[in-house]
């Protein structure tokens, strides 16, 4: 913690940002058919160009959302899983009868998986749904890149399930409560965030454990670099970036830190083509950070000097997403403030 933190940035991109208010807490950001989209806590999907609100969860709150080029998939506290398309049509693909949707993941072939409590559903691209009951509530889901296989995090580990086979899932064990989950793009590693402010990883081939500790808060946002060589994480007062270049992952290697500020990182998003990370903080600041030399560019200034975080004043950055080519960065905050950075 630096008492006299210099919040002056040599280069600012603030002039290239158009800001607007989304009208509700932003849960997720993304680009649908190349156009910016926000999923909002009030149950709406906001198609920004043209400005249109789609009530994907009328009377509900969006708990989770995944946005990609083809569709927006949302899970709500109304127990519904809904797909919204660029033409503003919605389709309910799952209904857990009022149970909250606790985890959600999507694969680029169109397969979708979600969980409600211990109940996990995998819906393949053809719409065939398979169900599995995990040992405890599932908090994180991720498809493995090869084969139709789903990883699910729960108490004391992760289960790897082939929805199309009868066999019991393979289990990656580690005691404790595992929250969010991510799979490295090459499919070699599975990483979870834990209740104890740490990450846990496994090399899936031999289940070798990797512990990544030292966070002052929980990691709730991960992002792998486009080449899979780095994993950017939230939860500290810097973006902590773990090296995944070798088959041993980050074992025995220190992480890089970039974007050190006196506030915690809440969201991270690696640029889709370059070793640059967009970093959002709990006080509403957003920086771009170049991994090679740690150079920082200001995207958005949040709380000013002397302003304090409080339960009523939490402008935490809650969503960050790049478009396909990395020319635009869409962001949203818990306060409903949002914006788009357009790089020249």
């Amino acid at each position: 913690m630096q008492p006299e933190f210099d919040e002056v940035y040599d280069t600012s991109l603030v002039g290239a940002v158009s800001q607007f208010n989304a009208g509700a807490q932003v849960v997720a950001a993304g680009f649908l058919a190349n156009k910016p989209v926000l999923a909002l806590a009030d149950g709406n999907i906001l198609l920004i160009e043209p400005n249109q609100r789609v009530a994907a969860h009328p009377d509900g709150a969006v708990l989770l959302a995944h946005i990609d080029d083809q569709r927006v998939v949302t899970g709500g506290d109304d127990g519904r899983v809904v797909v919204t398309r660029a033409d503003a049509s919605t389709l309910e693909i799952g209904n857990e009868k009022g149970r909250w949707i606790d985890a959600l993941t999507v694969r680029n072939d169109g397969a979708i998986a979600w969980s409600a409590g211990k109940h996990v559903r995998a819906r393949d691209a053809k719409g065939v749904v398979k169900s599995h009951e995990a040992p405890s509530t599932v908090r994180g889901l991720g498809f493995l890149p090869k084969g139709y296989r789903l990883a699910m995090s729960h108490y004391n580990g992760v289960s790897l399930w082939f929805p199309n086979t009868e066999g019991a899932p393979d289990v990656l064990k580690w005691p404790g409560s595992h929250l969010d989950l991510t799979i490295s793009p090459d499919g070699l590693f599975c990483v979870t965030s834990m209740q104890e402010n740490a990450l846990h990883g496994w090399r899936i081939s031999d289940k070798k454990d990797m512990r990544m500790t030292g966070y002052p808060g929980k990691t709730r946002s991960f992002s792998f670099s486009h080449d899979g060589q780095w994993l950017a994480t939230s939860g500290a007062d810097a973006c902590v970036v773990w090296p995944f270049q070798t088959k041993d992952g980050p074992m025995g290697k220190p992480p890089r830190e970039c974007g050190v500020r006196p506030f915690k990182v809440s969201q991270v998003a690696f640029h889709p083509e370059a070793p640059v990370i967009a970093i959002g903080y709990e006080d509403g600041w957003i920086l771009l950070c170049r991994l090679a030399d740690g150079a920082e560019l200001l995207v958005r200034a949040g709380l000013g000097e002397g302003e304090e975080l409080s339960p009523r004043n939490r402008p935490s950055v809650s969503a960050l997403a790049w478009d396909k080519g990395g020319h635009k960065l869409l962001f949203g905050l818990e306060t409903g403030e949002a914006g788009i950075l357009t790089l020249g």
């Binding site: 506290d77 606790d102 409560s177």
Partner: peptide, 13 residues
């Protein structure tokens, strides 16, 4: 664990 998750989710409302 369920309470942590539920309180987090309630903050959406």
């Amino acid at each position: 664990g369920d309470l942590i998750r539920i309180i987090e989710g309630l903050m959406r409302r």
